[in-house]
């Protein structure tokens, strides 16, 4: 697909992305983009494209770019909410609500800090906690003067967002299925660790220690990669 390259060549052209996106819609034919994606079983858009789309919505409320985001994320957010035990109708309503938030907050998206999927996940998670538990998800405030900032890392050790995504994917791929399964339960079942233990009929201590193990592995893998990258660059 040459969308990525074309956009990179002229990132500032305001209507260019819309043009390309519209072309893609046209190519997708009557069934629409979503169906063509479902048929091919893979996405027509890379993470880079989704970043550009979010930025286009944030900068100038670009509707074509928003359509791309909608086609990619709304069906997944709906799936996420259904997995958490909601009806199709509720899930669709929440997916719509999430996308409304995305439209309103796109200007706050910072590609250096989060991948689009991470950013979307946070919005969907907070909305569903609010909708189904009637609770808030308390968060720290990046601009709070009391916040203790991270120690500055030397420039050659700063890991790019994209790099960190690749590391995480690699680390997740190496987790044993037993630990991956617990991670999925944590994200998709809205279960306390006690409830997961009951569900799997294993002791609470085992659930906690497996999850801890998974987290330690993910952490170690990412740290090792950071280190390797830093070593490689400094040589």
């Amino acid at each position: 697909m040459n969308l990525k390259r074309e956009i990179k060549l002229s990132p500032a052209a305001p209507s260019y992305l819309a043009l390309v996106v519209n072309n893609m819609h046209a190519h997708a034919g009557q069934g629409g983009l979503e169906q063509s994606m479902a048929k091919s079983g893979e996405d027509a858009f890379s993470a880079d494209d989704l970043v550009l789309c979010l930025q286009a919505v944030g900068a100038r409320q670009d509707r074509a770019a928003f359509r791309v985001l909608f086609d990619h994320f709304a069906p997944r957010i709906k799936a996420y909410i259904i997995k958490l035990g909601c009806s199709h109708q509720q899930a669709e309503e929440l997916a719509q609500e999430t996308m409304t938030k995305v439209w309103n907050k796109a200007g706050q998206f910072d590609a250096a800090k989060a991948a689009p999927s991470t950013w979307m996940f946070r919005i969907a998670r907070n909305l569903r906690i609010d909708a189904f538990r009637r609770e808030n998800h308390p968060e720290f405030d990046q601009n709070d003067p009391s916040l203790i900032p991270a120690e500055e890392r030397p420039a050659d050790q700063v890991v790019e967002q994209k790099q960190s995504e690749r590391q995480l994917l690699a680390a997740m791929a190496e987790l044993p299925e037993e630990q991956m399964h617990l991670l999925r339960l944590s994200f998709f079942q809205d279960m306390s660790h006690g409830a997961i233990a009951d569900h799997l009929n294993i002791p609470l201590g085992t659930v906690k220690s497996r999850l801890r193990l998974a987290m330690v592995k993910l952490r170690k893998k990412i740290d090792d990669n950071d280190q390797m990258q830093a070593d490689g660059l400094s040589r």
């Binding site: 689009p116 999927s117 950013w119 979307m120 998670r125 995480l168 997740m172 991670l183 999925r184 994200f187």
Partner: peptide, 8 residues
């Protein structure tokens, strides 16, 4: 949260 994004 990035894991959450990947799973999503």
């Amino acid at each position: 949260e990035q894991i959450g994004g990947e799973l999503l």
